[in-house]
Structures are given as C-alpha cells and as structure tokens.
Nucleic acid binder design. Sequence first.
DNA 1: GGAGAATAGTTATCATAGCAACTGTTGCTA
DNA 2: TAGCAACAGTTGCTATGATAACTATTCTCC
Lengths: 179, 179
Amino acid sequence: MANPKLSNRSRSSAVQGEIRQTKPFRSTAQEATIALLRTASIVNRALARVVEPYGLSLAQYNALRIIRGAGAGGIPTLSIRERMIEEGTTITRLLDKLEDAMLIRRERSVPDRRQVLCFVTDGGRKLLDSLDPLVNAADEDAVASLSELELERFISLLDAVRQTNAKRGAPRNAGLART
Amino acid sequence: MANPKLSNRSRSSAVQGEIRQTKPFRSTAQEATIALLRTASIVNRALARVVEPYGLSLAQYNALRIIRGAGAGGIPTLSIRERMIEEGTTITRLLDKLEDAMLIRRERSVPDRRQVLCFVTDGGRKLLDSLDPLVNAADEDAVASLSELELERFISLLDAVRQTNAKRGAPRNAGLART
DNA sequence: GGAGAATAGTTATCATAGCAACTGTTGCTA
DNA sequence: TAGCAACAGTTGCTATGATAACTATTCTCC
C-alpha cells in the first residue's frame, strides 16, 4: 500500500448517509471503490430491465451488438468475449442461446477451421433496431444528472482507474463495447 | 430522452482504444455507462480475488463486514441485504454459508419473532481482522491512479449518478457498506 | 515433415443471482 | 377479538457466472 490516502474527513457523504453508518469511511479510496461498485450495480440493473422484456439478458444484448458491429465478415467467438463488458467465460452458451433464438448464425471459418464466426441474422438485426433507441435512452437517463463536462471528467476518471487495474491481476485488459 | 448529449467528438478515448472500435461512441452518455460498468467489473474481480483464497465470495465478505459492524446487538437479515453493495435476493442462502463456516451465528429476535438476528462469531471476527488490511490495500490499489482531489470528485460524480437512479426503477435506494 | 506448443472453442462442475411462491409473525381495525 | 394486510424470511426453480479440464486445429522450427 504505497499511498494510504487516509482521510476520515468530515465531508458530507451520500454513501455514508445511505448506509446509515456511524463511523466514517476509513479512507477515501475505500469509499470510492464502494461507490463505484454500488453505482455500477444500480445502473446495470436499470439497463437489464430495459432489455429483459425482449428476452435478452444484458450480456446477450451486449454480445449481439458486438456481432452486429462486426458486419458482414462475421466475428470469431473469442473476439466477442474480449469486447464484452463482463468477460464472462460462458460465451459459448451465451451464443448458443442467441443462436437458438435465431438472432445469430455461426459457421466455422474457412482458412482457420479452429475459429467459429458469428453473424447477426435479419431477425437479430431487427430486434436490435427496436432496442437501440430504448437502450440509448436508458444510457442517457442513467447519467442524466451529469453535465456534458462532468461526463467527460467522469469518463476520464473511470479510464484512469481501468488503466491501472488492467495492468495487473485484472482478467484481461481488453475492451468492451457495443458497436 | 430529454437530453441527448450527442457528441461524437474527436477526443481520444481509452475505451474506444480498448475495444478497437472504428466508429466513435454515439454519445458521451453511452460511453460513460459502458466505462462505468466495465470499470466496476474489473475492480469487482480484483477485489474478489483478494477474499476468495479465504473461502469467501466478495458478497459474503461484504455481508460479514456488515454483520460485524452491527456490533453486539446483532442485525436482522433484511437489514444486511439493504446495506450490501449488490442487493442479492439470495441473502438467506448467503448467510447459510457463513453460518456453516461458523463465521456468524443466527437467532430469532425476542420481541419480534419474525426477525432473525445475525451476529459475528469470534472466528468470523478473526477472519475479518486478517482480511481487513488486504482488502484496504486492494481498495487503495484499485484507485491508486487518482489523487485525493480526484477521488473526491469521482465519489461526487458517482453519488450524483446513484442519486438519480435510485429514485426510479432501481432496486432500492438503500445503502451499502462495509462496517 | 513430425513432435510439441499455442490457439480457438467447448463442456463439466459448482457456486451464485433473480424471480416468484410460500410460511410464520405481527399489527391494524372494524 | 377475529380477520386481513403487511412484514421478515425461506425455499424452489431457472439462468447465469467462474474455473478448469478437454477436443480440435494450426503454428513452429528443428
């Protein structure tokens, strides 16, 4: 622990209020990590509720968007996993579900027969088209309390946190995305 | 969607780089939510790796800390859930595990026999005592790239996001905490 | 060109999250 | 004070997540 950053200051804290804690947090760092995890959990569930009525989990929706983003060339299975928000190890079964639902199609790659390429089907594309505005709206809502400038700062701070954590034990410093 | 906040600016984005996306994010809000979820996922796993060697999941560790924080008076089951980071509905079974491991003790409340009060055992307290420094260090590490001032801002931004989301569909606007 | 390492996925096993239905207890109130 | 709503937990079912072991294919480089 190179930099203790112990503070125990008396700043009013929303998190402290929420948890009805008597003692203040022992460090700003601890408060920050808890606030981060807590906030993400809430946003995650809010977004999940948007797509669930359409029979998709948030992870499935995310994967589907990534596959659509790959375009006509398709995308190999593990590339999808690298780009997902939660790098679930269950990517195969997740894709199985999407394929069962006829939202994607899979076929072995021609030059490299180890790979399995994934393509979005017309049905999958149609589903995404109807979901896009809803999810975009939910994204906006989730951070609606922040101004554009605050959003930029927020993203920078998150990037910084991710940067340091990606280097060490973290699962994989790959990306995420919807595209 | 009251406030589109569409930007598509050309600012360099760490998240974009990570995901090797060709097209920029469609909105700053979308980039922020993705960065938030992604970052939390990474930090979550980093913290989980700290406690897992001791036979605890992060949620179990969190619950155990909450129970310890309640002190000699004990704490009813559902109060624990309200204060947890992830408000899992599986609180009963989570506590079952902790009880099986002799880390907590449970007994029906005297005045209100509906409640089940939870207490940390000596063993549980000892385990936490040995884990505390490790988890504190991990918390510090997770946000080590941020200065104290940045941490304060970061927490404020997270608080703001949580505030708006707690009001609507979110699970429950209760708290979280270890203590 | 063949042995072995590396890569791409899949499968098995287990623990956990979510939802909903259910039991036992207390409080309200007519 | 009987009856019903609300509260506190529990349990069953299903789906998802994490690890790790396993198969199939390709690469490497003597």
